[in-house]
């Protein structure tokens, strides 16, 4: 089981990504698709954090003296995730408001029925 312990975080992250994609592909309900995006995004954040992980590392904050810089995890992925989360929130907010509007216009959230724009 060396393999699993080696790659647990990656596997978890990618499982989330794949599950999210599966939901986006298969589910009909717009809200569920949005939830799928949430899961997909979460998987990506987890993956980014995992990339920067250092075994037995500490947070990259010199909150008290005497912390070993060599033991700190990579701060860059954390910064990226911070940015990515904000972007994710923005997209999510827009998606939700559009879903509300879709419901107001079509009376349904079923994506298979919202097909006025085609061909």
């Amino acid at each position: 089981m060396n393999f699993l312990s080696e790659y647990t975080y990656y596997i978890g992250a990618f499982s989330l990504i794949i599950i999210g994609l599966y939901i986006i592909l298969v589910k009909k309900n717009l809200m569920k698709v949005i939830i799928g995006f949430s899961i997909f995004d979460t998987g990506i954040y987890l993956f980014l954090i995992a990339v920067g992980y250092l075994r037995e590392g500490t947070a990259p904050v010199f909150s008290k003296p005497g912390l070993d810089a060599g033991k700190m995890v990579d701060p860059v992925p954390q910064a990226l995730v911070l940015t990515a989360i904000v972007i994710g929130v923005a997209v999510l907010a827009l998606a939700v408001i559009l879903a509300i509007k879709i419901y107001a216009h079509y009376g349904t959230l079923n994506l298979r029925k919202i097909k006025e724009q085609r061909w």
Partner: peptide, 19 residues
């Protein structure tokens, strides 16, 4: 109607791409 529908579809595909 058309605008909202297109925007939703655009958003779904676009943010998948961004991901």
């Amino acid at each position: 109607r058309a605008g909202i529908e297109s925007a939703v579809k655009y958003l779904i595909q676009g943010s998948l791409g961004s991901g």
